[in-house]
Amino acid sequence: MNRMSKLRLFSRTKDLESQIDEFLDKLSEASVMFRLGVRTYLKEGANGEFDVKLKAVNTLESNADGLRRNIEKELYTHTLIPDARGDVLGLIETLDHLLSLFEGTLWALAIEKPEIAKEFESGFRKLTNMVVQASDALVLGARSFFRTPHMVGDYNHKVMIYEKEADKISTQLKLDIFGSELDLAHKAQLRNFVEQIDNVADWAEDVADRLAIYAIKRTV
């Protein structure tokens, strides 16, 4: 291997490394924007500030999509990390779906503009905080997979805890909604939002399960 191709190999490596890091940054950023978006909606409805957050998540999602495609192309074109390529692609794709869930929920709020009564605001806020924490712990786990796979288990454990807590909150919220005086259509609409938000934590848990296997494969 001559000096030039050696340099090419390492510059490609650096490039790919930063693309993966950037992809994970987008996901962390999107979770912050999602949390702020839901809080803004609960406080002020779908106003200008909410639109800013929605647009931010939208941009982050499409940027992350571009990065995902680039990463996939790099990995396959240059046959990089042949033994872990499938796992990395699986991880990136499933993480990408998390961004779609953030974006989809905010879009649904913008389109349907559900009326959320004061009594449910706290429940929605708590649920959003919990699912965002699950997502953040997952991103830390994913970062750890690339550098310190033996530590993935610690982050995954947190994801599981946050997911369980999110389940508890969402169940209580649904009980409260269906025990209220709202009409059935309104109850069904709010339940749908509860499930949509809770879905983020469920998905994070599913990805964490896969990540655990990928990490075991790396540490064996």
Binding site: L9, F10, T13, L80, I81, F145, F146
Partner: peptide, 20 residues
Amino acid sequence: LRHAELHLVRTDAYLRLGLL
């Protein structure tokens, strides 16, 4: 490798060179 905390992609590049 556990202590160096190299990125998976970088480890792969070093291994390629190492294998050569």
